[in-house]
């Protein structure tokens, strides 16, 4: 259940950003969570709903953008088929994860008086 500690880090970061701008409330957060990030989106959303009380995010909506894992060959750029060995058969080199390990805070929409 590390999702709870990640949400704590998220709320602390948002609080700092909001204070720096003198915001009185946060309306919406947008985060990106990769398929291979180790974060379960449902648990993350549950943790957010639990921990946002009495924070500046108490009434904020959470938008989570799920990012699919994409493995590519670093030489030819070809995409490795899902479920395959993580090697480029043509170039005989290890694949590289081009997306799918993100745990990112993208955007905060905050109310500034």
């Amino acid at each position: 259940m590390h999702e709870y500690s990640i949400v704590e880090a998220l709320l602390a970061r948002v609080d700092a950003e909001a204070r720096a701008r003198g915001a009185t409330a946060v309306h919406r957060l947008t985060v990106r969570i990769g398929e291979l990030s180790g974060v379960e989106i449902d648990l993350f959303a549950t943790a957010f709903a639990t921990f946002r009380d009495r924070t500046i995010c108490a009434h904020a909506d959470l938008e989570v953008m799920a990012v699919a894992a994409v493995w590519k060959c670093p030489v030819c750029g070809g995409q490795i088929e899902h479920g395959s060995m993580l090697q480029c058969a043509a170039c005989d080199v290890p694949a590289r994860l081009s997306q799918g390990d993100e745990i990112l805070l993208d955007r905060i929409e905050m109310e500034v008086p």
Partner: peptide, 15 residues
């Protein structure tokens, strides 16, 4: 009050 979008694009676990 004005709603201001702030683009962060940073890892949540940056700390």
């Amino acid at each position: 009050a004005e709603v201001v979008p702030v683009d962060v694009h940073d890892r949540i676990l940056a700390g």
